[in-house]
């Protein structure tokens, strides 16, 4: 952030570090780095936490001892732990994620090949969830504000709970059955055509969208009771100005605070949905690798997912800081 502001750096004004945006940036960056370090360390520790010898586990009980030994050496597993850790960190910095036990190919290549499909799925589902949920939640909030629409509220809440409960892979299975098998309208596997995106994106987006819409509605109802909305009405503004100008930004801000976690859960949700739709992404790869005990691949993909989550959280926090000036100064 400071890199493209050399002018401010050469003549540092004493108030520079006190500015809300600068303080927010520094604090947020610090949190990001700590989280990243925890993530990297956890992914490194994963292999060492597995009871027994991971190489023996991967190669099976019948593999000759000298082969296991040679493989352990090749992976550096016989070095002291600290050396291994430093080696791992150095590898990450240079883009070296290790070598697959199964295919003997560099893991970075596997990730590079698989990442785009997962990324496309996650981003589209993220957008679909937000685009579906926010207008729905806002409209429902206005319709069910205090003293209004008890029945609408009950129907909406119940439907919401049900939609949110159905796990994404079950939605996927049902969608495959209805649109793929019964109706035959849409492809049920692969990512070759645009039509192939429809079912996976919807399976992934519906759950989070239902929860997010409920949160937005509750926040909207709450905000409509807030003192400042009463102030806006005391200014005798037309109803749509009160809703759109005063209630909406606050409701969305509050909803985003709670909904941020939801959106990062969506990133992880790709694992299940990819397996339903045979999607050629990271999710189907990690499951296969766990089953074949190809730990370097698992390690790398866990890391990539983790980074995806951290980026999502960062995006949400920055969006919040833009929408609500107070969130910049709020400590965690």
């Amino acid at each position: 952030m400071t890199a493209d502001m050399p002018a401010t750096l050469t003549v540092p004004s004493p108030r520079f570090w006190a500015r809300p945006w600068v303080r927010f940036g520094v604090r947020r960056l610090r949190r990001l780095l700590v989280s990243l370090w925890v993530l990297v360390t956890a992914s490194f520790a994963m292999i060492h936490l597995i009871p027994g010898d991971p190489v023996r586990g991967a190669l099976g009980p019948t593999a000759p001892a000298d082969l296991v030994e040679a493989r352990r050496h090749a992976l550096g597993l016989d070095d002291p732990l600290l050396t291994q850790y430093l080696h791992y960190l150095k590898g990450l910095l240079t883009g070296d994620l290790g070598t697959s036990l199964a295919s003997r190919l560099p893991v970075s290549g596997v990730v590079a090949q698989r990442l785009p499909a997962t990324l496309a799925l996650a981003v589209l589902a993220f957008l679909a969830a937000v685009v579906l949920a926010i207008p729905l939640g806002v409209v429902m909030g206005v319709l069910t504000r205090r003293g209004h629409g008890r029945r609408t509220e009950l129907a909406f809440t119940t439907t919401g709970i049900i939609m949110a409960t159905i796990p994404d892979f079950l939605i996927g299975v049902v969608l495959v059955y209805v649109f793929g098998i019964q109706l035959g309208w849409l492809p049920v596997a692969g990512d070759d055509t645009a039509a192939a995106y429809v079912l996976p994106v919807f399976s992934l987006a519906i759950g989070p969208a239902a929860i997010l819409a409920r949160i937005v509605r509750v926040e909207m109802v709450g905000v409509l009771e807030a003192d400042f909305v009463r102030t806006a009405r005391a200014k005798r503004l037309p109803a749509r100005t009160v809703y759109a100008g005063h209630a909406l930004p606050n409701a969305v801000t509050a909803a985003l605070t709670l909904g941020g976690l939801l959106l990062s859960a969506l990133v992880a949700g790709t694992v299940l949905v990819e397996n339903v739709f045979a999607w050629p992404g990271l999710g189907s790869t990690i499951v296969r690798s766990i089953l074949t005990k190809d730990y370097p691949v698992v390690q790398a993909i866990v890391l990539v997912y983790g980074v995806g989550v951290l980026i999502t959280n960062l995006v949400v926090d920055v969006a919040l800081a833009l929408l609500d000036p107070r969130s910049k100064i709020r400590e965690d």
């Binding site: 989280s35 993530l39 956890a42 994963m46 936490l49 597995i50 990690i286 730990y295 866990v302 989550v309």
Partner: peptide, 15 residues
């Protein structure tokens, strides 16, 4: 808590 439950579950399932 920032990491979704499914990701943590996969991590522990490996361990």
């Amino acid at each position: 808590v920032a990491f979704p439950g499914l990701l943590l579950a996969l991590f522990f399932a490996v361990v």
